[in-house]
């Protein structure tokens, strides 16, 4: 394991990207920070800028108007970074798959490392997904 990866694993700073979602995954992500789940005990905190982030948590379908901005956000994130698609919409398009405004799902626009399905995934599922990935990371 190189130094970059080693330091990445210690404390994850997360930036949340919403590409046109119904807010539910977004709220569950926010819920992770509040007392019941409290991911800060693992060193995970929300970053206010993609330039400070190690992880991009992506929710929602990718709206045609958002595509360029999402690419921009991915380019701004320092590498190596982990991209997590949270929720059915981000993984596959979900119920909006056939919509005319659909430009995604996320893996069509930026490389995605973890898929967490569910509509919305429970906070426990999101934590479990990230923990599994970190264990695999070498």
């Amino acid at each position: 394991m190189n130094l970059k990866l080693k330091s990445l694993k210690k404390s994850l700073w997360v930036y949340h990207v919403s590409g046109g979602s119904c807010n539910n995954c977004d709220i569950e992500i926010l819920d992770l920070l509040t007392p019941r789940f409290d991911v800060e005990r693992f060193g995970i905190i929300l970053a206010a800028s993609p330039r400070h982030a190690d992880v991009l948590l992506c929710t929602g379908i990718v709206n045609k108007k958002c595509v360029e901005r999402i690419k921009e956000i991915y380019e701004q994130t320092p590498k190596p970074c982990v991209v997590v698609a949270v929720g059915a919409c981000a993984c596959s398009g979900g119920i909006f798959r056939d919509g005319y405004q659909m430009a995604g799902p996320f893996d069509k626009v930026i490389p995605v490392h973890i898929y967490i399905p569910g509509c919305p995934p429970k906070p426990e599922a999101i934590i479990s997904g990230i923990v599994k990935f970190l264990k695999e990371l070498k």
Binding site: S18, N23, I61
Partner: peptide, 30 residues
């Protein structure tokens, strides 16, 4: 506006009456 447009009204015209209930549920998570 428009960053969150998902074309739900149009999608609803291609879904069954019963399915639309679950589609409109996903307009807003709150």
């Amino acid at each position: 506006a428009g960053y969150n447009h998902r074309g739900i009204e149009k999608l609803s015209e291609s879904k069954h009456w019963d399915q639309v209930t679950f589609l409109v549920e996903r307009i807003c998570g709150i």
